[in-house]
Amino acid sequence: MKRLRYTLWIVVGFAAALFGLFAYQLSQPKDDFVESAMVGQPMPAFDLPPAVESRPGLSRADLADGEPKLLNVFASWCIPCAAEAPQLDALERAGANIVAVAIRDRTEDVDRFLAAYGNPFTRIGKDDISEVQLAIGSSGVPETFVIDGNGVITYQHIGDIRADDVPMLLEELRKAGS
């Protein structure tokens, strides 16, 4: 009987731990970001054709030319991508070299998008089957990666860039360059 009592108090303790876990998780802000496991890894090999006529395409070699860059993963059909356009402009004005991958997008749609929201990109690759997106562990649009001069991913920003993210991204870019 004594053994039964102990067992039961263990059950009570287990339930208490469970309630504690629930309470903790309820109090946590819920994010469903899937972080890339590629941060700290070199960019995988890829070679994308240009998404628009006015900018060249993007390949692995373009990202290992010694200059750290921001890699913006976007799409014209994605609403938050339009929302972050002013921040990308601000980053470009601050001297960032921004390259982009357009996910599942048509040339005319990308052109319209760039005409409407500005074009801060030096290169735009066209990724019709999300191949680069999958290869760098990105799970949605928009996402922004910091790539150092050797083509190594040093930072991943998930979701649209807010105004207060701009200095942080510039700092990450500076770190990648040093």
């Binding site: 004594k2 039961l8 059950v11 339930a15 309820l26």
Partner: peptide, 21 residues
């Protein structure tokens, strides 16, 4: 709901642990 859960289930389990013997 968590409070209700803790109250009913926790309460019943404690009662059970006290009374089982």
């Amino acid at each position: 709901i968590l409070i209700l859960l803790a109250l009913y289930i926790g309460g019943a389990l404690v009662l059970f642990a006290l009374r089982a013997s």
